[in-house]
Design a protein around this nucleic acid. Structure first.
Length: 479
RNA sequence: CGGGGCGUGGCUCAGCCCGGUUAGAGCGCGCGGUUCGGGAUCGCGAGGUCGGCGGUUCAAAUCCGCCCGCCCCGACCA
């Protein structure tokens, strides 16, 4: 019985995280160390994320394509910072068909290089620009320490790769996508994020500038939930992606890349989850409403199931993702706990009492226990269910914002700063010197998360060294 | 790659120190009954090369050696 209960977040957050994922059947460990199987429930969630993001990419003019899994080793050597950044984590194929290969093939850790190679072939004139391609793919990075969803050796993501005629356009694209990610996180996942610029030490290997969206998890650690890079002309020069402009002058393209991965599922889990398990935002939840019939006597069955099936059909016809749990080998109480563990936003209980009174007992996942329970009429079920789901979506976002804001501090001196990054995040002036950043990391384990696009007025002094500082930055311990 | 821990039915573990009949428990699983508004209950049942290889011994889950794998903590990371 004791092992029916989940480890509490306050007891051991990372144990809670692992248990929630395994028990809710989002994912499981694969036979290969560091790899995971995304189970049907997790895949359904990812597909909802995909569908929404994909629509947003298309709205902003992007198209999808598929590039190969294998990349010639030599491609990685063309861009100096890129190879330095990635070589420690490459998986390399050296044998094919029983023969040693002439040139080893890298299993893609990201696709800038192959895509750059292809862009060089495809782009000739300014009339070919911009090229705005996205791909949904899996990538492999050899990792020391892995965590389900947060850091696995193989992960699933989308990677966008664009090429432009001017530096301004490339920067505009980079920021446009950062905004797509920010909006998606806020409106669909109810995950508040801070969009901002990465420090030099945190930026993508080969980028001129990297931007990210940063989210606060339930243990106050930061999670980089999506990234967008302005690659300048670095890859264009390495792969000779060039074009002739209106004046017939040969120019290098300006490229960008951006990605959001299955790690985002980790963000959803740790932003909203509670001691009961997952809490999924209605807009992304694979199942939005679960109906549990309560059958006390065999004579009740027909009437109860009639009401259950009728409401199910109405909701389904209205496009609400609804499921009836009619298993007869587990008790209603067991089902309540199980669907709570799995984060379904709304639960309906329908029993003989409801049949008699024409009602439905509803329970909100985001408000555990009595406060979240309410008796509703069977009439207008589509209307009020839709309203309730939206209310839950909004309440989840508000709660996450309140939690985050309560854990962001503005320390006045370095002693306070050290306490701040123990209790949450510090939002502080920083001199932007890498040495200072490193010293802070050594002292506190906190790193710069991002320099937010929204900056306060004025100037200050660096929280660590006291030198003049132009911008404020978020410092936090991060996943 | 350094430090620590662990490998026994699907899962969590007991048994090992001190070798000795058919290797146990709880949970889960299957069948049947009574149940069902917050993790029901009773009965019957299926399921194990004790991580692998070698050694010691009349006898090894238990003692010894080697190997493999996993987990946790540190240096790198979407």
């Amino acid at each position: 019985m004791a092992d029916m209960k989940l480890t509490k977040q306050s007891e051991n957050y990372s144990e809670w995280y692992n248990q929630v994922i395994l028990r809710s059947e989002l994912a499981d460990y694969a036979p290969v160390r560091g790899c995971m199987v995304v189970r049907p429930y997790g895949t359904a969630l990812w597909e909802n994320i995909q569908a929404d993001l994909d629509a947003r990419f298309k709205e902003t003019g992007h198209v999808n394509a598929k590039f190969p899994l294998f990349i010639p080793m030599s491609f990685f050597e063309k861009e100096k910072e890129h190879v330095e950044g990635f070589s420690p984590e490459l998986a390399v194929v050296t044998i094919g068909g029983g023969q040693e290969l002439e040139e080893p093939l890298v299993v893609r850790p990201t696709s800038e290089t192959v895509i750059g190679y292809m862009y060089a072939k495809w782009i000739e004139s300014y009339r070919d620009l911009p090229v705005l391609i996205n791909q949904w793919a899996n990538v492999v990075r050899w990792e020391m320490r892995t965590r389900l969803f947060l850091r696995t050796m193989e992960f699933f993501w989308q990677e966008g790769h664009t090429a432009h005629a001017t530096a301004e356009e490339a920067e505009e694209e980079t920021l446009k996508i950062l905004d797509v990610y920010t909006t998606f996180a806020r409106d669909m996942a109810a995950v508040p994020v801070i969009p901002g610029l990465k420090s030099d030490s945190e930026k993508f290997a080969g980028a001129v500038r990297s931007y990210s969206i940063e989210a606060m998890m339930g243990d106050t650690k930061a999670l980089q939930a999506g990234t967008s890079h302005n690659l300048g002309q670095n890859f264009a020069k390495a792969f000779e992606i060039d074009f002739v402009d209106e004046n017939n002058t040969l120019q290098y393209c300006w490229t960008t890349s951006w990605g959001l991965s299955t790690r985002f599922i980790g963000a959803i889990i740790m932003t909203h989850g509670d001691d009961q398990g997952l809490v999924l935002p209605p807009r992304l939840a694979p199942t939005q409403v679960v109906i549990v019939p309560i059958l006390r006597k065999e004579e009740d069955r027909a009437q109860v199931m009639e009401a259950v099936n009728r409401l199910f059909a109405e909701l389904k016809a209205a496009g609400i993702r609804v499921k009836v749990d009619d298993r007869d080998n587990v008790s209603p109480g067991f089902k309540f706990n199980e669907w709570e563990l799995r984060g379904v936003p709304l639960r309906f209980e329908i029993g003989p009492r409801d049949v008699e009174s024409g009602t439905v007992m509803t329970a909100r996942r985001d408000m555990p226990g009595k406060p979240g329970k309410k008796v509703m009429p069977q009439e207008n079920v589509v209307q009020w269910t839709g309203d309730l789901l939206e209310e839950i979506q909004q309440a989840m976002y508000d709660k996450a914002v309140a939690f985050r804001d309560a854990h962001i501090f503005d320390p006045q001196d370095y002693a306070e700063f050290q306490q701040s990054v123990e209790d949450g995040w510090a939002f502080s002036w920083w001199c932007e010197d890498a040495a200072c950043e490193e010293a802070i990391k050594q002292d506190t384990k906190a790193t710069t998360r991002c320099i937010p696009l929204d900056q306060p007025q004025g100037e200050g002094v660096c929280i660590h060294c006291g030198r003049p500082a132009r911008r404020k930055v978020y410092f936090a311990r991060a996943y």
